[in-house]
Structures are given as C-alpha cells and as structure tokens.
C-alpha cells in the first residue's frame, strides 16, 4: 500500500492531539480568559415582568465592587444559593445585580415574591443573549466586578457561607481597598 496513505492516521491524530493540548489550556468551567480583568461587555437588560427597573452594564461600573448573579426560577441550585444571597442583602454586605436567565415572563417575579428579593436590580435575559456574551455555562453563576467595571472573578457554583468566608469575602475586601 502507498506509504502516504499509511501516514494519514498518525497525521490526523497529531492534528487532533494538538487541538486537545490547546483545549487543555482552557478551563471549560472558567470564564473565557479574555473576560477576566477586562471591562464587562456592554449590555442593556429590560426589567422582568412585574418589576419596573432593568439595568445596563454601565450601572455596574460606578466605582463600587458589585456582584452580578445569574439565576432562574427553574434552577435547583439557585434555590440552595438564595438564602445566603438574602443574608448578604439584609446585612448590606454588597450590592447584587440579578440576571434572570431564560425565565418565562412572570416566573422571576413569582420566585422573588416567594423567597425574597436580594437584588438591587434585576434584568431580564429571557433570550439568553447577555448570558451568552458573559460566557455563562450554567446557573447559578456569579461575577465579581471591581471599581473600574472590570470582571475580576467568576464563581460557577452556588455561593455558600463557607465559600464566602474563605474565598469571596476576603477577595472583595481586597478589591475594595485597591
């Protein structure tokens, strides 16, 4: 058989292997690396049905460290996260902006009415367009945005009290002191 033909499999694998190696450098659970330490992408979200104010990305760039939290009434883990967010809001620890992801009209409001509203403002992302720009892979997901409006960190799981005390809290203190 022709030598060249026999080399095809190994060449093919070399190409695939190179992609794998490259892919390894990308953490699938991390935000696309280009967003970390970069300004928050521009977006404008309408209010969810039942509330009157949405927000835009500019509002998150007003010299304050804030959280942008992705949630949906359909999301089980958000249910688990919610009480702690309420605690943060009640203690005025930090401003939390809510991104209501792929929720049918009315569902988000219903959820906040029942469980309480920890959010400063809630934006409607029924189409998932904003979440796509942010590289959201699942809910809940939380972005830490610094004073200059740059994305500094992403949490791709429910925030718990323990996680806050050990990781997120200290990080936010440091960002505030910068």
């Amino acid at each position: 058989m022709n030598r060249v033909v026999l080399i095809i499999p190994v060449v093919l694998f070399a190409v695939i292997g190179a992609f794998f190696a490259w892919g390894l450098t990308r953490d699938p659970t991390a935000i696309p690396s280009q967003l970390i330490d970069k300004p928050l992408p521009q977006f404008e979200m309408a209010a969810i049905e039942g509330l009157d104010q949405g927000f835009s990305s500019d509002e998150l760039k007003k010299g304050e460290v804030v959280l942008l939290n992705v949630f949906g009434s359909w999301c089980v883990s958000c249910h688990i996260e919610h009480p702690f967010l309420m605690q943060l809001a009640q203690n005025d620890t930090i401003k939390i902006y809510g991104l209501n992801w792929k929720d049918e009209p009315g569902k988000g409001k219903e959820w906040l009415d029942r469980l309480g509203n920890p959010y400063t403002k809630v934006g409607d992302d029924y189409s998932g367009r904003v979440a796509l720009d942010l590289g959201v892979t699942g809910a809940p997901e939380t972005f830490v945005i610094d004073k200059e409006g740059k994305v500094r960190f992403r949490v791709a799981m429910p925030i718990t009290e323990q996680y806050w005390n050990n990781t997120l809290g200290p990080m936010i203190e440091e960002l505030r002191s910068q």
Binding site: P9, V10, G17, F20, A21, L24
Partner: peptide
C-alpha cells in the same frame, strides 16, 4: 494527554 499521545501516536506511527 501524555498517555494519549504515547498510546495513540505511538501505535499509529508504528502503523505508518
């Protein structure tokens, strides 16, 4: 990835 490279790359080179 090293295991993959050695096992697959090695056997396919041998094949070639």
């Amino acid at each position: 990835l090293m295991i993959l490279m050695a096992a697959i790359g090695g056997s396919l080179s041998l094949f070639a």
